[in-house]
Nucleic acid binder design. Structure first.
Length: 159
DNA sequence: GCCAACGTTGGC
DNA sequence: GCCAACGTTGGC
């Protein structure tokens, strides 16, 4: 049994890993490692399912923008980078016996013809309640309403 | 580079 | 369980 797909937004700093990097992976697929926030982890672990859709967002970019879409191709499993002392996101409290952090695999679906800058999105009525646009919003994995997802897709095809 | 907003940690 | 101190995120 599968439910209707849900919609998400995931942030990445393009200086660390960009949508262009994703486009060059084998099968244009990667594991979304390095998430170290419980709320974000819980969304991945408890709610993300195969075929769910993801908006990819470039944070700390000039300008910050939604840059494309991806699909969940593997559901949550332990993030092994948390066990590697040399990894930037190493967490000594996580272990193979008792993994604390999870990740999913995503496959690139589309790189938008034009990035949609945060500033532009702030002016869109259909997005007025979007988590990304909330003041102080920092969540790196966040749910998106279907109406919001559709509005952003539509915007990406304009101009 | 600044700093507001937020999350986590740890003493008590 | 409170909350001050600290670390991080991320727009600007």
């Amino acid at each position: 049994m599968t439910r209707a797909p849900k919609y998400w937004l995931m942030k990445t700093e393009p200086s660390a890993y960009s949508i262009q990097d994703l486009s060059q992976e084998p099968d244009q697929t990667t594991c979304w490692d390095g998430v170290r926030n419980y709320q974000a982890r819980n969304f991945m672990r408890d709610q993300m399912q195969l075929q769910d859709r993801v908006l990819l967002y470039h944070s700390n970019a000039k300008p910050p923008a939604v840059v494309g879409t991806a699909v969940i191709v593997r559901e949550a499993y332990p993030d092994h980078t948390a066990w590697d002392p040399k990894d930037k996101h190493y967490d000594p409290k996580s272990s193979p016996e008792n993994p604390r952090w999870m990740m999913v695999d995503i496959q690139l679906e589309a790189v938008f013809d034009r990035p949609l800058p945060l500033e532009e999105l702030r002016g869109v009525r259909a997005l007025s309640k979007m988590e990304l646009l909330r003041k102080g919003s920092r969540l790196s994995v966040q749910p998106v309403r279907k109406t919001e997802y559709d509005a952003i897709q539509k915007l990406s095809r304009k101009k």
